[in-house]
Simulated assay, not measured.
Amino acid sequence: MALAQVVYGRRLATTRPVPFLQPVHLGEDPADGFLAFEERPTTPRPPACAPWYQGQIVDARQGPELIGYHEPERGLFHFCYNVGTAFTYDHPQRRITALWSPPQTFEDTCTYLTGPILGFVLQIQQRVCLHASTVVMGTSAVAFVGPNGAGKSTLAAALLRRGAEVIAEDVAAIERQAEGFVVHPGPRAIRLWDPSVTALYGRPDALPCISKHWEKRYLPLDTPEQPRPARLTAVYLLEVVPAEAPVSSTQLSPMQAVTKLLPNIYPDWLPLPEARVAILDTLTQLATVVPIRRLSLPNSFCRLDEVCDYVLARHG
């Protein structure tokens, strides 16, 4: 029987089980996509074509963190990370091939896969992904949107301790269905930096590291059964404010909301005009039916319970 797992509403046949993804039985139905993994002794070579996208340069000696290549005539996208991990996405076949070489590991590769790579694949399939963590409180599914370091995962983990269910962390895959906009479940783990782990659990080593090459730690989301898509009832754009500032929120107009959401699509490197048009259309529809608010988040772990109280009072 073929191995298959589900994430972001996609059932993927895979050659190896991906950490934190739930198994799924395909039955007679075809998979929505395919994953293949291969470790190589040397760094995978980039394709011969010219770069299509170049990421930021963190270290001048290593060059861009990520370089993307596009072969439109074949429907292929290649993504080469400077750490020695590479991905090829065959759009016609809906197949992702992941390659890595030591010292990179399978776990390192899966971190890229379940984040920016699958986010990119979903968006060129015209499903919007936001840089957001999503929790369910009672009958409300609420997404907390913001860039790296805004506190999305920390707030989701704090709400988890207060009885909320976390269905997606860091990536919110959104789809319009008959009952409204829904968020599809993501990997069953929350990733946190050491200061957040210390604030929530008392010490940084209270949670295990993702891998020896990643400083973030993870909190498994143990659930008895696969979470279902949740109807999105509110979106909060996190705005970090001084530690002494009050916790408050402000309703945004649909036009303001779309302007604020666009920089938070995930990943934000999507230089495909047709995909961006589809994303803009979906965000415009979303902003007209789902309340989108700006939420002030005091820059102090001591205020986390107060922020949770504020959110739970409105959605718990």
Rank of each mutant, 00 (worst) to 15 (best):
T88W: 04
T114I: 14
L99F: 15
R95P: 01
T88R: 13
L113G: 09
I124W: 04
D90E: 11
L130C: 08
L113S: 10
T97W: 05
G119H: 04
M137Y: 02
P103F: 11
G138L: 12
S133G: 13
G138S: 12
L122P: 00
Q126A: 13
L99M: 11
A141S: 11
C129D: 02
C110Q: 11
Q123H: 06
V145E: 02
S133M: 09
F106G: 03
L118G: 01
Q93S: 14
Q104H: 06
A132R: 04
Q104D: 08
Q125T: 05
D90A: 12
F144H: 08
S101Q: 09
C129I: 01
N148Y: 13
S133H: 08
M137N: 01
L122N: 09
R95V: 02
H91C: 11
R95F: 06
I96N: 01
A143F: 07
V135K: 05
T139I: 05
A132I: 05
T88I: 10
Q123F: 09
P116R: 07
A132H: 07
D108L: 08
D90F: 03
S140A: 15
P92A: 10
S140V: 00
R95W: 14
Q125H: 14
L113F: 12
A141W: 04
L118H: 02
P92L: 12
T105F: 06
V145P: 01
S101V: 03
P102H: 07
A98K: 00
M137D: 02
G149R: 06
T111Q: 13
L122M: 12
D108N: 13
L113M: 11
T109Q: 03
T97Y: 02
F144L: 15
C110W: 04
E107P: 01
A86M: 13
V142R: 04
Q125M: 11
Q93Y: 01
P147F: 06
A143I: 07
P116Q: 12
T114N: 09
S140M: 03
V128P: 00
V121R: 03
I124V: 15
W100R: 00
S101R: 05
C129A: 12
H131F: 08
E107R: 14
S101F: 02
T139F: 09
A86C: 11
P116D: 09
G138K: 13
G115S: 15
F106W: 14
R127L: 10
P147T: 10
F87K: 01
Q123M: 15
T85H: 02
R95D: 01
F144A: 08
V135T: 11
R127Q: 15
R95H: 15
T134M: 10
P103K: 07
V121C: 15
V136A: 06
T134I: 07
R94Q: 15
F87P: 00
G149F: 08
Q93M: 13
A86D: 03
F120C: 10
C129S: 04
I124G: 01
T139N: 15
C129P: 00
Q104E: 14
T97S: 14
